[in-house]
Amino acid sequence: MSLTAPLARTRRPRRPGQPRRAWRRAISPLALLAVWQLASSTGVLPREKLDSPLNVLDSLVGLWTDGRLLDAIQVSVTRVLVGFALGAVVGVGLAVVAGLSRIGEDVVDAPMQMLRTLPHFGLLPLFILWFGIDEAPKYALIALGVAFPLYVNTFAGIRGVDPKYLDAARAFGLGWTERLRHVVLPGALPSTLVGLRLSLGVAWLTLIVAEQINTTAGIGYLVSDAAGFGRTGEVVAGLLIYSVLGLLTDALVRILERKALAWRLG
């Protein structure tokens, strides 16, 4: 054992079985793709139900080159950004109010906990009545979906800050705003970032639902339009774009987490 241990210590500490394992994990998805392609090529899977993987790729390239994809992405990303920003301001703002004072908690938390149980998709008909059929109801729906996970996690984060740190800060003469800046907000940040990741997931999900109805632009419009003409390759291409965008924002939050929470690992 003493002979092999130093050899195993390479520059990047990686278990020797890992690269092979990664390949092994790639086998079944690739096999599924191959089966799908085979089923399409042999006609077992009809094109009007589901296009072949190669045709999906072809649709993707086509949508990209004629510019429709980029337009759609711009519209959809804008919806998520605006809706998310509105929801984040409301969710985090209310969490700070409820987290920092008993009065705030009594006034804010009870209605928030009640509204939280409401499935926000169910409000879509009302939102259309209130905000019309343009972008406004989409923003509102995304904002509503985003606000709750951020509210719940930020509130819990603020309340979870160890009172010993607050005592120490008071003993050193830090005033209210300084305690907020140096103790409460950084202490609540890990929990808030959990809320951020959850809420971005909700944001994309809500976008997909909101874009199914009364749209003339965006990825959702692209998908439902293609579906109407039986172009299943474009439908799948649109779904792929949704998941790539979702993965991208998740990766962004991970990077943010690594930077902002470096203190946890040292």
């Binding site: 010993k164 740190y165 005592d167 140096h182 103790v183 950084p186 940040l189 203190w263 946890r264």
Partner: peptide, 10 residues
């Protein structure tokens, strides 16, 4: 204090 109570994020 008994525990040093250094703010872990500073």
């Amino acid at each position: 204090f008994q525990e040093p109570r250094l703010l872990p994020w500073r």
